[in-house]
Simulated assay, not measured.
Amino acid sequence: MKRSVKSAATDRNFVVALARGLDVLRAFRPNDGMLGNQEIAARTNLPKPTISRLTYTLTKLGYLTPVPRFEKYQLAPAAMALGYAALANLGIRSLSEPFRDELMRQTGGACAIGARDRLSMIYFGQSRSSMTVGVQLDVGSRIPIATTAMGRAYFWALPAEERAQLLREFREHYGSRWAKMRDGLEQAGEMVAKYGFVISAGEWQDDVHAAGVALTLNDGTGPYAFNCGAPAFRFTEERLRNDIGPRLLAMVRNIEAALGGLAAPQPKKTEPKKNKSGGKVARIVEGLG
């Protein structure tokens, strides 16, 4: 989770140099290949001289491999090993795979599971086929929390205090764009309360529609969230509401059953009241609930 400069400066246990080194590794995204110091500096908002020292250190430690011909770096096996170790320890990834594969076959949509990475969700499991060619996402891909079905499902599964903190980060990060995103989150909250799933129809990418459902465990990990998406012409809003969303919700409930005692009990659903401006869901979205 991203820490503000103020909180880092007042936390004596926070090692700024380590955080900056990890930010350099995080700058590399799927399909990036190589990055130069200037590109890394732009992505991390750190001075180029600082980046030069960090990439030098990470090279010496074996986490980056220099490519002198291009004056760039790429992730080394030691860095990739961290990611593979994390994936191996995520039991929910392997347990959910047959469920995701089955939903993919039933719907023709891509089905993924993800977890939070700052203001994004990061895929750590993905089931897709040739029918989902329009959804170019794979393990390691990041999508925004505020505008996607997976992200919104995750958001409403958070405890109130964590949700309020995330809202503050949204407002700071998105600025003038936040008002429209806030409305989408409010509608998602109403939909979760009523149906147990959320949808995003072209709110992240015009040509991608998806439904999302969260999964909360009792072992202290997560929450996680699943989505099922496809090109907009295949998953219309009507189909998302009447077919894809209910199927995805049933899949997550089946995963909860397979997990047994690890899955957190689901709260009883109550029919939400129609929210006027300033209603309960609106207050939560404003960080006042």
Rank of each mutant, 00 (worst) to 15 (best):
M1I: 02
M1Y: 05
V5G: 00
T10Q: 13
T10M: 12
N13Q: 10
V15L: 07
V15S: 10
V16W: 05
A19S: 15
F28M: 02
R29M: 04
P30N: 11
P30L: 11
N31S: 11
M34G: 02
Q38A: 14
A41V: 09
A41S: 14
T44E: 09
K48W: 06
T50C: 04
I51N: 05
Y56G: 02
T59H: 08
T59L: 03
T59Q: 08
K60P: 02
T65M: 11
T65N: 15
V67T: 09
F70S: 13
E71Y: 13
E71P: 00
K72A: 15
K72G: 04
K72D: 07
Y73F: 15
Y73G: 03
Q74W: 00
A76Q: 04
M80R: 13
A86L: 12
A88Y: 13
I92G: 03
S94R: 13
L95R: 08
S96H: 08
E97I: 00
R100H: 03
D101K: 14
R105I: 06
I113P: 04
G114F: 06
A115C: 03
D117H: 14
Y123F: 15
F124I: 07
R128D: 10
M131Y: 08
V133L: 03
L137V: 12
G140S: 07
S141M: 06
R142G: 00
R142Y: 01
P144L: 01
P144W: 04
P144E: 01
A146Q: 05
T148L: 10
G151S: 05
F155E: 03
W156E: 02
W156D: 03
A157S: 15
L158V: 06
L158R: 01
L158W: 02
L158G: 02
P159H: 10
E162H: 07
Q165Y: 08
E172G: 01
H173P: 00
Y174H: 11
G175C: 11
S176L: 10
S176D: 14
A179L: 08
K180G: 05
K180V: 09
D183H: 11
G184V: 05
E186D: 09
Q187N: 08
M191V: 03
A193R: 13
Y195F: 08
F197E: 01
V198G: 00
G202W: 04
G202V: 04
E203D: 06
E203W: 02
W204V: 00
D206K: 14
D207T: 06
V208A: 06
A210D: 05
G212R: 01
V213Y: 03
V213G: 00
A214Y: 00
T216W: 02
L217K: 06
D219T: 12
G222S: 10
G222Q: 03
A225P: 00
N227F: 06
E237W: 06
E238A: 14
I244P: 00
G245K: 09
P246G: 09
L248E: 03
A250I: 06
R253G: 09
R253Q: 15
E256G: 10
E256W: 04
G260E: 02
G261E: 13
G261V: 09
L262D: 07
A264M: 13
Q266D: 06
K269V: 13
T270H: 15
S277L: 11
G279D: 14
K280H: 13
A282W: 09
V285G: 09
